[in-house]
């Protein structure tokens, strides 16, 4: 027996009955209300802060640098005052001065016993300049929370950079920058300012005396000429006798010189005191050359 399909009339009737029943039941259903409540609590949350300190840098300041030797080693102390370990780099910020920072070498090395020796060791140092400082040596390039590291440091003027820098100076502020590994967090500990000062040039020669030489008086000198004497200048390593055009006629470490009659210094001679960092302004003494009798001092 095959099931019979409901007629359209019956389908419509069923729909009407169903809808009626649904509406009746839905209309009589009870309304539901859910009570709610809330409460609040407060909790503090804080981020840590990095901090570090650099001390001892004032010992790098040097007055009157007059040689290419290293200055006395200085003990630098880096304190990680944070509650987290830090990686360190050294930073030098130039503030004032005419001295070229690339002329000054900075060497760093690790102190094994917390002290720094009187001399710079021949090995185990890292070197840079005040323009590009070296990396902190191993063992001091990072520090655990609360740890202190000691770095030894010394400076010197690089070879062949001293002469010509007389009186120049450079002031900079060294600092260590600590960073928290794997993050963007950094902190900076600035040390005391460091000043490097080059010794001044020697003072000018004074009391220059010019004396005519007589062939008869000095038969071994080879002819007429002039004799020059002057006072010794403190800090001078030597002296140059120059013509008025700047030509170096002779050099000496003493305080006298002789110019032969045949030399031609022009209308004057100049004595220049030389020091390690430069030379003094010249002082002059008038002279003249007689075609017949040679070189003579002019009467002041």
């Amino acid at each position: 027996m095959t099931p019979t399909r409901p007629t359209p009339d019956r389908a419509r009737l069923s729909a009407v009955v169903g809808a009626s029943v649904f509406l009746v039941l839905a209309g009589t259903a009870g309304a539901t209300a859910l009570w709610t409540a809330a409460t609040t609590t407060t909790t503090p949350a804080a981020a840590g802060a990095l901090s570090t300190e650099l001390t001892g840098t004032a010992g790098l300041s040097a007055a009157a640098i007059d040689s290419e030797d290293y200055g006395a080693p200085t003990r630098l102390t880096v304190d990680n005052t944070s509650a987290a370990g830090l990686d360190y780099t050294l930073s030098l910020e130039t503030t004032t001065g005419a001295l070229d920072p690339t002329y000054v070498e900075l060497v760093l090395w690790t102190s094994t016993d917390g002290t720094c020796p009187a001399e710079v060791p021949s090995t185990g140092t890292s070197a840079g300049t005040l323009a590009e400082p070296p990396a902190l040596p191993g063992g001091t390039s990072s520090a655990e929370a609360g740890a202190t590291t000691v770095v030894c440091a010394a400076t010197r003027i690089l070879p062949d950079r001293l002469f010509g820098t007389a009186g120049q100076s450079l002031t900079l502020v060294p600092s260590v920058v600590g960073s928290l590994t794997g993050t963007t967090w950094t902190t900076r500990g600035a040390g005391a300012a460091v000043t490097q000062t080059i010794a001044p040039a020697p003072a000018a020669v004074t009391n220059l005396m010019c004396t005519d030489r007589d062939l008869l008086d000095s038969p071994d000198t080879g002819g007429d000429g002039i004799s020059l004497t002057w006072e010794d200048v403190d800090g001078a390593d030597g002296y140059q006798v120059r013509s008025d055009t700047g030509q170096v006629l002779t050099e000496t470490t003493g305080t006298s010189a002789v110019l032969a009659a045949g030399e031609n210094p022009g209308s004057s001679v100049q004595i220049v005191a030389l020091g390690p960092t430069g030379y003094a302004e010249a002082t002059s003494s008038p002279v003249h050359r007689d075609p017949q009798t040679g070189l003579h001092c002019d009467t002041p």
Binding site: W35, A37, T40, A45, A46, T184
Partner: peptide, 27 residues
């Protein structure tokens, strides 16, 4: 639990806040 993001900016150093947590209940 409160976690500070690994990429937290350096500017967050030393910052402290009071967080208010509101817990609700439904009948």
């Amino acid at each position: 639990s409160a976690q500070l993001a690994p990429e937290a900016p350096s500017a967050a150093q030393g910052g402290a806040v009071d967080l208010q947590l509101t817990v609700g209940g439904t009948q």
